Amino acid sequence: MQGKVIFIGAGPGDPELLTIKGAKVIAEADVIIYAGSLVNPEVLSGAKEGAQIYNSAQMNLDEIVQMMEKSTSEGKLVARVHTGDPAIYGAIAEQIQYLKNKNIHYQIIPGVSSLFASAAALEAELTQPEVSQTVIITRPSGRTPKPEREAIFRLAEHQATMCIFLGVHMIGKVVSELLTFYDPGTPVAVVQKASWDDEKIVRGTLEDIVDQVQEAGITKTALIVVGDVLGTGRVTPSKLYDAHFTHEYREGEGE
């Protein structure tokens, strides 16, 4: 009987943020291929005795998919463990394409993204009423190119909440592009290793965040969050819980 590949979002780092469903698959898997450069090894602590465990940081794509094909042809369950949620910079599309071409069964289990772990660490709501109702997830162009229309300086025109992955090592360039449209006093936070025991948070504005990040020695595994939702001003209450607002489940007072 043919086996199966299950892609698992391992969460941002804290092993307790692994989903129950993901944990069950890891416990049952015959073969585990995990992104060792980012996934907390503690996430694999529930693996069964005798499970074959491979660190994909030391493997190329051909080696990974060939391992999947060989294992599933032997009827084995393969857990492909990615950091955060595999839908965001998870590099799963190329693996899925291979599995489809080989008619290998697969499934995807979502995970908690470092984006949401960072928001929790910052005690922030990324979509505050009358401040920002849009979250832009992006990364700067680097060794992996991106369409010119998605350049950070173009996205900055919206002045929405922006969450920038894979860019802290070039934060000077990122800030320069953001300043095309954002005010220099716009709040910024950089969260390194969100939810890990050694999580680090740096807060500032577009005027001073570059110096603060450099002083903190943060060069990787960090998310940049930009926007007025990080400010400390008065919060406008949402309509959802407004006593005078009527919706499907409740009639507002005085109406």
Rank of each mutant, 00 (worst) to 15 (best):
H244M: 10
L77R: 12
F245Y: 15
Y241P: 03
V31H: 10
I104R: 11
M162L: 11
A189D: 03
E248M: 14
K220V: 00
V235M: 13
A29P: 15
G46C: 12
V226A: 11
W196C: 08
M162G: 01
V174H: 05
E248K: 12
Q97N: 14
E69C: 01
V191R: 06
K100T: 08
A91H: 01
G36R: 07
S113C: 08
D228E: 15
I109T: 04
I171A: 00
D62K: 08
Q52V: 10
I137D: 01
V210M: 12
K173Q: 15
Q95W: 08
A151I: 00
N60A: 05
N55V: 07
G185K: 12
I224C: 11
N60I: 10
T205F: 07
G22Q: 10
M1H: 14
H158K: 07
E125S: 02
I171H: 07
T138D: 04
I164R: 02
P187C: 13
L38R: 02
V190E: 10
S195N: 09
V168Y: 06
I171S: 05
L115M: 02
A243K: 12
G185E: 14
L179V: 05
S37L: 09
A29W: 07
V135E: 02
G90A: 07
A117K: 00
I218H: 08
G142E: 03
T219A: 13
E69V: 06
E251N: 09
G217I: 11
V39T: 08
P187Q: 13
H247K: 11
V225T: 13
K70D: 06
G13A: 10
R154G: 00
V81H: 07
G3Q: 12
T127W: 04
L38C: 09
V168R: 03
L126W: 09
R149L: 01
Q97D: 11
Q192C: 09
V210S: 02
A216Y: 14
A93Y: 04
I88A: 08
A156E: 05
R203H: 13
A87N: 07
Q95Y: 11
A79W: 08
E148S: 08
A117S: 11
A117E: 01
P41V: 09
V174D: 05
L230K: 10
E130R: 02
D242H: 12
P41Q: 09
A91P: 02
I33K: 09
L126A: 12
S114T: 11
I171W: 04
L122W: 02
K70E: 13
P184R: 02
